[in-house]
Design a protein around this nucleic acid. Structure first.
Length: 464
RNA sequence: UCCUCAGUAGCUCAGUUGGUUAGAGCGGGUGGCUGUUAACCACUAGGUCGUAGGUUCGAGUCCUACCUGAGGAGCCA
């Protein structure tokens, strides 16, 4: 009698084990019971598909097993046999079934389709559904693929801080980190909050991005990346935003915007290909039940490559579009969701880099182009998700960077260590940020970001 | 935060121009069924119709406010 996983059996081991006795440990996904025999579909966590267990009155505890409830945990010992049923090549003829944990009868998951909205309310149980089993395995594989991609290329993985003392990250609202008693906050003589008395002796927040810090490591290791959580306190209520998200932020030295785009494209292609190879059952499931065009779209992307478009050309393309936009298109505007969708879903039908945006609508650290009008920034727009990646070549010239900080009304002293990088051996460098959850959405076809992270944090909701 | 839509059984939903005791499928319980595939058949329990007001002889249905959820927009990854 041999312990074995469902994955091993499905991936070929069963042919050699016909007639052999094996042991499986898992949970009842569904069951079909008759008077004198029954079928249990068991999932042991190793594989997307369930294995069918057949049992009959020869079981010592037949009566108990024939009343098994969905969600119960079992240890099954039995013989691998070829299945007469049409939907599976093999099954387990049980000799012994130990009921480890009988699920109460009010187990919320049923043999039917549940809405994602309902499943969000039982996020502690939803991993047990087909969809979420598939989503979270893909999420895991995707994380691994990202590390593989960068590690194979010699990139150094850097853990940038989650608690940040720089109030200057620039990207949106932050969550304050404090140990103050909120009913009794220390104040200065002027009546302002006295952060010098707080835990860190200064005002601190949860990070919105590791980019500024990872640039410091880029100036030693040349090729680096972060992969960790970031926190956004914006009151965003959309299917594409969450308050706690995971980001990947590579940074490369001696590189310009076009090297950056090459890296981003190579990375996206690598991770998509890798996950499609490692999780074919899950991808097939998504294609069948979540998004009918998914595999075709991903394969088209892998075969045809990405489009690259200057911002100015993108504006022209939008101006020529025979489609009315709610937001009028003129050079200088930031692209709206409707514009992004048109470019990537209607006009080009594939991922598109929009590059070299107007200086006025982008961040201080992006490198000013020779036209002095645009900056070396890029967004990667993909069908269905919108902005998947945002990146730029960084301003490596000390004087220009100081000038940009001034222009945007920021304070140079706040950026002292960031500016130092431009004083001590500065080099052209570039990087981008990939929203990990958005990548999972792109890969699975899932439409709501709350359904691709185990326990989503959004405004007004931090259950679990 | 703004706009739109929705909230009826544990879940997914139906409920006609306001009119008796509010329905179905699934899930639960009981019984039946010797190869099922969201198994099937019979019976059965299960509801302050999101909350609070209001209009009316009468409200699940109409009105107001609030709460919750979703979609769109903005902010952004």
């Amino acid at each position: 009698m041999k312990p074995i996983t469902v994955k091993e059996l499905f991936r070929g081991a069963y042919t050699k084990l016909i007639g052999e006795s094996v042991q499986l440990k898992g949970w009842v996904r569904t069951s079909r019971l008759s008077k004198t025999f029954g079928f249990i579909e068991l999932n042991d966590g190793s594989f997307f598909k369930n294995i069918q267990i057949v049992f009959d009155e020869s079981l010592a505890n037949f009566e108990a097993v024939s009343k098994i409830t969905l969600g119960s945990s079992l240890i099954v010992t039995g013989e691998v046999v070829e299945s007469p049923g049409a939907k599976q090549a093999f099954e387990i003829k049980a000799h012994e079934i130990t009921i480890v944990g009988l699920a109460d009868a009010d187990y919320p998951l049923q043999k039917k389709r549940h809405s994602f909205e309902f499943l969000r309310t039982i996020a502690h149980l939803r991993p047990r559904t087909n969809t979420f089993t598939a989503v979270f395995r893909v999420r895991s594989l995707l994380a691994h693929a990202i590390h593989s991609f960068f590690q194979d290329r010699g990139f150094v993985y850097v853990h940038t801080p989650l608690i940040t003392g720089s109030d200057c990250e620039g990207a949106g609202e932050m969550f304050r980190v404090t140990t103050f008693d909120l009913l009794n906050v220390p104040r200065t003589e002027k009546g302002e909050v006295d952060f010098s008395k707080d835990f860190f002796g200064k005002e601190t927040n949860l990070t919105v991005s590791g980019q500024l810090e990872v640039e410091t490591f880029c100036m030693n290791f040349a090729n680096v990346y972060t992969f960790g959580p970031a926190f956004r306190a914006e009151n965003s209520n959309t299917p594409r935003h969450i308050s706690e998200l995971w980001m990947i932020e590579p940074e490369i030295a001696f590189a310009d915007l076009y090297d950056d785009a090459d890296l981003a494209e190579d990375m996206v292609r690598y991770i998509v290909k890798d996950v499609m190879e490692k999780a074919p059952e899950e991808m097939e499931f998504f294609n069948k039940f979540i998004d009918n065009g998914l595999i075709e779209r991903l394969e088209h992307m892998l075969n045809s490559g990405f489009e690259r478009l200057d911002y100015s050309d993108a504006i022209q393309l939008l101006e020529k579009a025979n489609q009315k936009f709610d937001y009028p298109v003129t050079w200088g505007i930031d692209l709206q969701t409707e514009h992004e969708r048109y470019l990537t879903e209607v006009a080009l039908k594939k991922p598109v880099f929009v590059m070299n945006y107007p200086k006025a609508i982008k961040a201080f650290y992006m490198r000013v182009n020779d036209d002095n009008n645009t900056v070396a920034a890029m967004d990667l727009l993909v069908p269905g998700v919108g902005e998947l990646i945002g990146g730029s070549q960084r301003e490596e010239r000390y004087d220009v960077l100081c000038q940009r900080i001034d222009e945007l009304g920021l304070h140079q002293p706040d950026y002292w260590w960031y500016l130092d990088l431009r004083r001590y051996g500065t080099v052209p460098h570039a990087g981008f940020g990939l929203g990990f959850e958005r990548a999972v959405m792109y890969l699975t076809g899932m439409k709501n970001i709350r359904d691709v992270i185990p326990f989503p944090r959004v405004p007004n909701s931090a259950e679990f």
